[in-house]
Amino acid sequence: MLKDRKIAVITSHFLEGRGLCSLLTENFSGIGIRLLASPVELSDSESNSYDLFLVSADLFVLHFEYLLPRKNKVVVFGNTLSAELHHSSLPFLNVNTSESDFVKQIDNLLNKSISQDNNDGLTVRETEVLTLVAKGLLNKEIADQLGISLHTVISHRKNIASKLGIKTVSGFTMYAAMNGLISLS
Protein backbone atom coordinates (compact mmCIF):
# COMPACT_ATOMS: atom_id res chain seq x y z
CA MET A 1 0.00 0.00 0.00
CA LEU A 2 2.85 2.36 0.80
CA LYS A 3 4.93 1.27 -2.16
CA ASP A 4 6.12 4.02 -4.52
CA ARG A 5 5.12 6.72 -2.04
CA LYS A 6 7.47 9.65 -1.66
CA ILE A 7 8.19 11.06 1.75
CA ALA A 8 10.11 14.20 2.61
CA VAL A 9 11.74 14.23 6.05
CA ILE A 10 12.29 17.86 7.01
CA THR A 11 14.51 18.71 9.98
CA SER A 12 17.51 20.94 10.62
CA HIS A 13 18.94 18.31 12.99
CA PHE A 14 20.96 15.94 10.73
CA LEU A 15 21.25 13.16 13.32
CA GLU A 16 17.50 13.13 13.89
CA GLY A 17 16.94 13.19 10.13
CA ARG A 18 19.35 10.33 9.38
CA GLY A 19 17.82 8.29 12.19
CA LEU A 20 14.27 8.82 10.98
CA CYS A 21 15.25 8.03 7.38
CA SER A 22 16.88 4.73 8.30
CA LEU A 23 13.97 3.80 10.56
CA LEU A 24 11.58 4.40 7.64
CA THR A 25 13.75 2.45 5.17
CA GLU A 26 13.99 -0.52 7.53
CA ASN A 27 10.30 -0.70 8.30
CA PHE A 28 8.57 0.42 5.12
CA SER A 29 10.11 -1.06 2.00
CA GLY A 30 9.68 0.52 -1.38
CA ILE A 31 9.06 4.10 -0.32
CA GLY A 32 11.14 7.00 -1.59
CA ILE A 33 12.66 9.18 1.12
CA ARG A 34 14.41 12.51 0.89
CA LEU A 35 16.01 14.39 3.77
CA LEU A 36 15.73 18.19 3.71
CA ALA A 37 16.90 20.91 6.06
CA SER A 38 13.99 23.20 5.07
CA PRO A 39 10.80 22.87 2.97
CA VAL A 40 11.92 25.96 1.04
CA GLU A 41 14.46 23.76 -0.79
CA LEU A 42 11.56 22.26 -2.73
CA SER A 43 10.17 23.87 -5.88
CA ASP A 44 6.36 23.92 -6.27
CA SER A 45 6.29 21.04 -8.74
CA GLU A 46 8.70 18.97 -6.65
CA SER A 47 6.67 19.66 -3.57
CA ASN A 48 3.48 18.40 -5.21
CA SER A 49 5.11 15.07 -6.04
CA TYR A 50 5.52 14.19 -2.34
CA ASP A 51 2.86 12.19 -0.56
CA LEU A 52 3.94 13.04 2.94
CA PHE A 53 6.00 15.64 4.78
CA LEU A 54 7.45 14.57 8.14
CA VAL A 55 8.39 17.90 9.70
CA SER A 56 10.15 18.60 12.99
CA ALA A 57 8.11 20.77 15.36
CA ASP A 58 10.52 23.74 15.28
CA LEU A 59 10.59 23.86 11.47
CA PHE A 60 6.79 23.50 11.36
CA VAL A 61 6.47 26.68 13.40
CA LEU A 62 8.97 28.48 11.11
CA HIS A 63 7.35 27.34 7.87
CA PHE A 64 3.70 26.88 8.76
CA GLU A 65 2.52 29.27 6.05
CA TYR A 66 4.15 27.03 3.48
CA LEU A 67 3.01 23.78 5.11
CA LEU A 68 -0.59 24.54 6.09
CA PRO A 69 -1.97 24.61 2.54
CA ARG A 70 -0.55 21.08 2.22
CA LYS A 71 -1.78 20.14 5.66
CA ASN A 72 -3.32 16.80 4.75
CA LYS A 73 0.16 15.63 3.80
CA VAL A 74 1.94 17.00 6.85
CA VAL A 75 2.85 15.11 10.02
CA VAL A 76 4.77 16.97 12.75
CA PHE A 77 7.24 15.19 15.04
CA GLY A 78 9.00 16.19 18.24
CA ASN A 79 9.43 15.40 21.94
CA THR A 80 6.83 15.62 24.73
CA LEU A 81 7.60 19.28 25.38
CA SER A 82 6.97 20.31 21.77
CA ALA A 83 3.84 18.12 21.73
CA GLU A 84 2.43 20.27 24.50
CA LEU A 85 3.24 23.42 22.55
CA HIS A 86 1.74 22.04 19.36
CA HIS A 87 -1.45 24.04 18.72
CA SER A 88 -2.77 22.75 15.47
CA SER A 89 -5.07 19.97 14.37
CA LEU A 90 -2.26 18.32 12.41
CA PRO A 91 -1.15 14.84 13.51
CA PHE A 92 1.75 14.84 15.94
CA LEU A 93 4.33 12.08 16.42
CA ASN A 94 5.90 11.98 19.86
CA VAL A 95 9.49 10.67 19.75
CA ASN A 96 9.63 10.03 23.52
CA THR A 97 8.41 6.47 23.17
CA SER A 98 9.65 2.97 22.36
CA GLU A 99 10.86 2.15 18.84
CA SER A 100 8.08 -0.37 18.16
CA ASP A 101 5.42 2.07 19.34
CA PHE A 102 6.92 4.84 17.22
CA VAL A 103 6.91 2.66 14.09
CA LYS A 104 3.30 1.70 14.79
CA GLN A 105 2.33 5.37 15.08
CA ILE A 106 4.03 6.17 11.77
CA ASP A 107 2.28 3.25 10.12
CA ASN A 108 -1.14 4.49 11.31
CA LEU A 109 -0.44 8.04 10.20
CA LEU A 110 0.90 7.00 6.81
CA ASN A 111 -2.16 4.91 6.06
CA LYS A 112 -4.48 7.62 7.26
CA SER A 113 -2.93 10.55 5.47
CA ILE A 114 -2.60 8.68 2.22
CA SER A 115 -6.23 7.60 2.18
CA GLN A 116 -7.51 11.10 2.88
CA ASP A 117 -8.61 13.51 0.18
CA ASN A 118 -6.39 16.50 -0.21
CA ASN A 119 -8.24 19.27 1.69
CA ASP A 120 -11.75 18.49 0.47
CA GLY A 121 -10.74 18.86 -3.16
CA LEU A 122 -9.25 22.33 -2.73
CA THR A 123 -6.08 23.12 -4.63
CA VAL A 124 -3.03 24.42 -2.78
CA ARG A 125 -3.69 27.91 -4.17
CA GLU A 126 -7.35 27.81 -3.12
CA THR A 127 -6.31 26.78 0.39
CA GLU A 128 -3.89 29.73 0.50
CA VAL A 129 -6.63 32.14 -0.60
CA LEU A 130 -9.08 30.65 1.93
CA THR A 131 -6.58 31.04 4.76
CA LEU A 132 -5.99 34.70 3.92
CA VAL A 133 -9.74 35.41 3.63
CA ALA A 134 -10.18 33.75 7.02
CA LYS A 135 -7.51 36.02 8.47
CA GLY A 136 -9.60 38.99 7.37
CA LEU A 137 -7.54 40.21 4.41
CA LEU A 138 -9.27 42.12 1.63
CA ASN A 139 -9.29 40.75 -1.93
CA LYS A 140 -6.80 43.38 -3.03
CA GLU A 141 -4.41 42.50 -0.19
CA ILE A 142 -4.69 38.80 -1.01
CA ALA A 143 -3.93 39.52 -4.66
CA ASP A 144 -0.83 41.52 -3.68
CA GLN A 145 0.41 38.95 -1.20
CA LEU A 146 0.07 35.99 -3.57
CA GLY A 147 1.09 37.93 -6.66
CA ILE A 148 -2.12 37.17 -8.57
CA SER A 149 -4.80 39.42 -10.07
CA LEU A 150 -7.87 40.63 -8.20
CA HIS A 151 -10.03 38.81 -10.72
CA THR A 152 -8.24 35.54 -9.95
CA VAL A 153 -8.77 36.01 -6.21
CA ILE A 154 -12.49 36.53 -6.76
CA SER A 155 -12.76 33.46 -8.96
CA HIS A 156 -10.85 31.37 -6.37
CA ARG A 157 -13.26 32.57 -3.70
CA LYS A 158 -16.26 31.57 -5.78
CA ASN A 159 -14.78 28.12 -6.40
CA ILE A 160 -13.96 27.59 -2.73
CA ALA A 161 -17.47 28.61 -1.66
CA SER A 162 -19.07 26.25 -4.14
CA LYS A 163 -16.73 23.34 -3.38
CA LEU A 164 -17.33 23.63 0.37
CA GLY A 165 -20.95 24.82 0.23
CA ILE A 166 -20.10 27.89 2.31
CA LYS A 167 -22.43 30.90 2.21
CA THR A 168 -20.75 33.62 4.30
CA VAL A 169 -17.32 35.15 4.88
CA SER A 170 -17.58 33.93 8.49
CA GLY A 171 -18.01 30.45 7.04
CA PHE A 172 -14.50 30.72 5.51
CA THR A 173 -13.10 31.57 8.93
CA MET A 174 -15.05 28.74 10.56
CA TYR A 175 -13.73 26.26 7.99
CA ALA A 176 -10.16 27.45 8.46
CA ALA A 177 -10.43 27.22 12.26
CA MET A 178 -12.11 23.80 12.23
CA ASN A 179 -9.40 22.44 9.95
CA GLY A 180 -6.44 23.97 11.73
CA LEU A 181 -5.52 26.43 8.94
CA ILE A 182 -5.71 29.30 11.43
CA SER A 183 -5.76 29.24 15.19
CA LEU A 184 -8.36 31.13 17.19
CA SER A 185 -6.91 33.05 20.05
Binding site: K167, M174, M178, N179
Partner: peptide, 20 residues
Protein backbone atom coordinates in the same frame (compact mmCIF):
# COMPACT_ATOMS: atom_id res chain seq x y z
CA UNK B 1 -24.18 43.07 7.94
CA UNK B 2 -24.17 39.46 6.83
CA UNK B 3 -27.37 37.39 6.96
CA UNK B 4 -27.25 35.67 10.36
CA UNK B 5 -29.34 32.70 9.22
CA UNK B 6 -26.68 31.92 6.60
CA UNK B 7 -23.95 32.12 9.23
CA UNK B 8 -25.86 29.59 11.32
CA UNK B 9 -26.20 27.42 8.22
CA UNK B 10 -22.40 27.52 7.83
CA UNK B 11 -21.89 26.75 11.52
CA UNK B 12 -24.29 23.81 11.32
CA UNK B 13 -22.50 22.40 8.30
CA UNK B 14 -19.09 22.78 10.04
CA UNK B 15 -20.46 20.76 12.95
CA UNK B 16 -21.65 18.10 10.54
CA UNK B 17 -18.60 17.93 8.28
CA UNK B 18 -15.48 18.75 10.26
CA UNK B 19 -16.00 17.66 13.85
CA UNK B 20 -12.98 15.60 14.90
Amino acid sequence: KEPVDEKIFDLRSMLMKYLT
